[in-house]
């Protein structure tokens, strides 16, 4: 490569970064959030403007689209992140590679790990922790209180309703590659809180969908993230998925993609919406 190219490359870089450098005030808190539940909490606390970067999966969070994409949470780029001049990186325990986090710390960035554990208690802790980091403790408590109220509502509804609907949570890893969410997943929590039964609660974590599993599960509902439905070719296409084609009588419910990835501050709302739909009277039966 010639010296001219090198010079041009440098010049281009400088031009590209100039506005960013000018806009940076030293006192400003610039955040990079890694993990949709964290991103969601920052936005719910009214601090979305602080987000200069979010990871790939956070891009699905409403209101996060104005931040720059920093890549997949396990394959972050140290210099890429640093070019956004963040003061704080708040990430789940899955963020990495570890060497990159070390390099960020070495460059003076405050790297905070907030676990992504899919339990309600962890969700409350997560909200309080993020609120504390943002100096919005009261707003954080308000979020937690609101979430608790909604969850109680949902619990009351599901207690009165019987029998509990059987739910199979699926998502597409890619077209035609279906995975089932078992115990210990965010989707499993969502189903339980909404008063349903996860039909594959005997499994831990996610597993590939098998025909026999579906037949054994005999679900009343198929729970999908919104983003997976187009990959199936809509409800129509879903009924042609091997296994699902063999069992009749199920209905489809969807939630926002982020609810499959972690339990965020809108957990209560999502649980209530799901509970309503799970306990709504079945329409006139038609074969799926």
């Amino acid at each position: 490569m010639s010296r001219a190219t090198l010079g041009r490359g440098l010049a281009l870089c400088l031009v590209a970064m100039a506005p960013l450098a000018l806009g940076a005030e030293p006192a400003e808190q610039r955040w990079v959030a890694v993990g949709p539940a964290i991103t969601e909490t920052v936005i719910a606390l009214g601090q979305g403007a602080r987000l200069v970067g979010v990871d790939d999966t956070s891009m699905a969070v409403p209101g996060a689209a104005s931040a720059r994409r920093v890549g997949y949470q396990r394959a972050l780029s140290a210099e890429g992140l640093l070019s956004l001049r963040p003061t704080k990186v708040v990430a789940t325990e899955e963020a990495g590679p570890p060497a990159v986090l070390e390099q960020l710390r070495g460059a003076g960035v405050d790297v905070v790990i907030v676990p992504n554990t899919p339990t309600v208690e962890a969700a409350r802790r997560r909200i309080r922790e993020v609120a504390r980091l943002l100096g919005r403790v009261e707003q954080g408590e308000a979020l937690v209180t609101a979430m608790n109220r909604e969850l109680e509502q949902a619990a009351t509804r599901s207690k009165s309703a019987a029998p509990r609907p059987r739910v199979l949570a699926l998502y597409a890893r890619g077209a035609g590659n279906w995975m089932v969410a078992g115990a210990g997943t965010a989707a499993d929590q969502l189903i339980q809180l909404a008063g349903g039964v996860n039909t594959v609660a005997a499994w831990t974590g996610t597993r590939p969908l098998t025909q026999e599993a579906v037949i054994e599960a005999a679900p009343d509902f198929i729970l999908l993230p919104e983003g997976s439905l187009p990959l199936a070719g809509g409800v129509e296409g879903l009924s042609r998925v091997p296994g699902l084609a063999l069992v009749k009588g199920w209905r489809v419910v969807t939630v926002e993609d982020v609810h499959f990835m972690g339990l965020g501050p809108r957990l209560g709302t999502a649980v209530n919406q799901l509970g309503e739909r799970l306990h709504a009277p079945a329409p006139a039966r038609r074969a799926p």
Binding site: M1, L6, G9, L10, C13, L14, M17, A21, S77, E79, G80, L82, S83
Partner: peptide, 9 residues
């Protein structure tokens, strides 16, 4: 070049 060029100017 590798030392000089990157996302951070």
């Amino acid at each position: 070049l590798a030392i000089a060029v990157g996302a951070v100017p």
